[in-house]
Design a protein around this nucleic acid. Structure first.
Ligand SMILES: [Mn+2]
Ligand SMILES: [Mn+2]
Ligand SMILES: [Mn+2]
Ligand SMILES: [Mn+2]
Lengths: 218, 218
DNA sequence: AATTTTTGTTAGACTATTCTAACATTATAG
DNA sequence: CTATAATGTTAGAATAGTCTAACAAAAATT
């Protein structure tokens, strides 16, 4: 499989998680590639039995396509973890590099990185690392946005990996694993005041709170 | 620069070290790409001022081409070193992977690997790692083949990175840095009997001895 | 139900990299 | 100094991946 094909599969996989149905246009926007190009690549991947395609119908991955995509995402996330844990990169710097290294052809290379990291289950953004069969564990986290006053929760994952968002979370001194307690929610704009680790107070816009995924503490 | 262009430059660089003049045919053989293809790529790289090209004349790298090639080789060798030192690969397993990773677009990634390795000067095969300007230190080693009986020397580098050669060196229990003393040379076939680290005796064919590069111990 | 908007498809072109076949030049050997 | 061999170049075609322009179908709006 080529680097290009791998990127298409991965994009379709991600879109399929977020949306009920995925259109050619969705894929086109997500890859920043024009629709006719996507159309022909979809046909090609369909002929390889990786995508199920019928004219004018939504796109879906076949079992094989899902597995292939899962395996690429596994490599991507292992690499991100390695870059943070062993090369000292910030979580906002790793995606671009992982986007390239995920296409390296060497099973053993990724196996060794997995081993070096002691078989991590999540990447630096809290996203699950698919297993050796490309299976992704389903995470069932809540958006901090949906929590009520006095709710306590643990910061488990981020809903966006945009640079600016990650940098903001850094600036707010928030890290995965932090305990968050909702102190106050503004009626007007849903801005939240929260207490982090029983320690520092922060104010979060609704947009930020939407992208902070938490596990509720009972 | 594309991955393909980088590979052409690197190949020309290596050939230029080994031979006085490099022809289109040499480059074609070394890359396993047919002559007409090489011919057109050479023209392209010439238009980018990376290769000096005149019809029917030998090929040479421009200053810029040399620098670019040196920088790719730097990445290649840093990666090989990393694979051996941190991921436990054998020196016979790293070339293929480095051949891919050398094309990753991220200065910082390679800088961090350099730092992690504590700024190594040679790769796992004893070849020099070019500096940040792509400059390669000239090594002045002797072939073990050329040593006389009773000569003592230190194993510094290998003249071939062929899998089978590296595996043989492993099997002979030879490692870079080992002290080698020539005990006997067969007149008939130049086979050498040597003493390694004042410890174990080994018999080396002339072909093997040619590819063992040593520093003479006075 | 008709019209407009959105989405999807087809056709045709372009660049990068490769190839084969044919021809040209240079080098080598008698 | 020719004839042959080796090397190099040109021409033309193929594949992968991309694009724009034009047309088609489906969905949304009146
Ligand atoms: Mn990522
Ligand atoms: Mn990618
Ligand atoms: Mn190598
Ligand atoms: Mn390479």
């Amino acid at each position: 499989m080529t680097l290009t094909e791998e990127n298409y599969l991965k994009a379709l996989f991600h879109l399929s998680l977020e949306n009920e149905e995925v259109s050619v246009l969705d894929l086109s926007k997500s890859l920043n590639i024009k629709m006719p190009t996507v159309n022909s690549m979809v046909k090609k991947l369909s002929s390889k039995e990786l995508i199920s395609y019928e004219k004018y119908k939504p796109l879906t991955l076949t079992q094989g396509g899902k597995r292939a995509a899962g395996l690429i995402i596994r490599k991507h996330r292992l690499v991100e973890m390695f870059l943070v844990e062993h090369l000292g990169f910030g979580w906002d710097e790793v995606h671009e590099i992982a986007e390239q290294i995920e296409h390296i052809k060497s099973q053993k290379f990724f196996d060794r990185i997995d081993q070096l990291l002691d078989f991590p289950k999540v990447d630096p953004h809290g996203s699950p690392i698919p297993d050796i069969n490309g299976e992704v564990a389903v995470q069932n986290y809540n958006k901090l946005e949906e929590c009520l006053v006095n709710q306590q929760a643990t910061f488990m994952s981020v809903g966006s990996s945009q640079d600016s968002f990650l940098k903001l979370i850094d600036k707010l001194n928030l890290k995965l694993g932090d305990k968050i307690k909702v102190l106050e929610i503004q009626d007007f704009d849903k801005t939240m005041r929260v207490l982090v680790n029983n320690n520092s107070e922060q104010t979060l816009s609704q947009l930020v709170a939407t992208n902070i995924l938490v596990k509720l503490n009972v």
